[in-house]
Design a protein around this nucleic acid. Structure first.
Ligand code: FES
Ligand code: FES
Lengths: 157, 157
DNA sequence: GTAAACCCGACTAGTTTAGTCAAGTAAATA
DNA sequence: TATTTACTTGACTAAACTAGTCGGGTTTAC
């Protein structure tokens, strides 16, 4: 298993999309400013999210990305999976063939842990994150930072 | 978070120690053969396990390593921690300061996941692993492979 | 005193991360 | 139609880390 900023950025960006859904398509430039993620890196991540049809894009001025499904129907596990970070902690990728085609001593333990991690992150949808108080607070802070003139707000629509 | 063969090897090796505890000190060469882990690599891992006093060593011929505590008192989480693999999946190492000293949108989610992973692996001791049927089966298989003459058995002990 | 074992530090090939950079294409609007 | 905004694609890279190897020790049982 490997859970790094790649997966965390993807989830954060998707949550940003869910929080700002009512504003229409959101440009990567906006997400980049709000979440402090490199624009070029976001492009890489959204290429993968689009391939897995978690988001759809609108090109041209005023364009951007939007969720291609209801936030209730998108789980954190799906997002992490889309950017190629595996939640599997086994060495054998669940094949049970670590040791000359047979199970190693700890295979069962890692299967068990993988299942729990997957169950947890599958049970959490973008919609349920949006409803959390902590998330709302951070979101409000991020939007007020924009209004304080730290960032270009005027022309944005 | 990063859970790779390093942590898996460490747990496997410690479990091997627990399973063979009654034979007296177990040499790394034995573990290396049974678990198919490079001897030099095991030396690196056991240096760290010893620093954390999870194992103690006996030098000289007939020597090896043994658990320095009851298997009931050693959890999988402790072992993984000892070889410097973190079970923490936050970016901020629990500080909540990802974004200019403040919490990022997903901080709470990662804290939550980290706590669950840690709780799970802390709840599993070497003793409880030894009692599992799957583990016993694999252990029997590994010992019979030795007796089939695939490996040097005669002079050991 | 010799061999079995632990101990220790330096080294390394390969992979992955977290990006950057450049050159496009598509679409809205003036 | 020209311009601009924004998505799209691919190549490239420094730094870190993994999963080891290698060579030399030191300790102790026999
Ligand atoms: S982790 Fe599945 S066989 Fe070893
Ligand atoms: S992960 Fe803790 S603040 Fe971002």
């Amino acid at each position: 298993m490997r859970l790094t900023t790649k997966g965390r950025y993807a989830v954060t960006a998707m949550l940003d999309l869910a929080l700002n859904a009512e504003k229409g398509p959101i440009s990567l430039a906006d997400i980049s400013k709000r979440q402090e993620i490199s624009l070029s890196y976001l492009e890489q991540l959204f290429a993968k999210l689009r391939q897995q049809s978690l988001v759809s894009s609108v090109r041209g001025p005023g364009g951007g990305y939007k969720l291609s499904r209801e936030p209730e129907a998108i789980s954190v596990a799906q997002i992490i999976d889309a950017v190629n970070e595996s939640l599997d902690v086994t060495n054998c990728e669940r094949q049970g063939n670590c040791q000359q085609g047979q199970q190693c001593l700890t295979h069962h333990l890692w299967i068990d842990l993988s299942d729990r991690i997957h169950a947890f992150l599958s049970s959490i949808s973008l919609a349920s994150l949006v409803q959390q108080d902590e998330v709302q607070e951070v979101s409000v802070r991020q939007n007020s930072a924009r209004e304080l003139g730290l960032l270009d707000v005027s022309g944005v629509q």
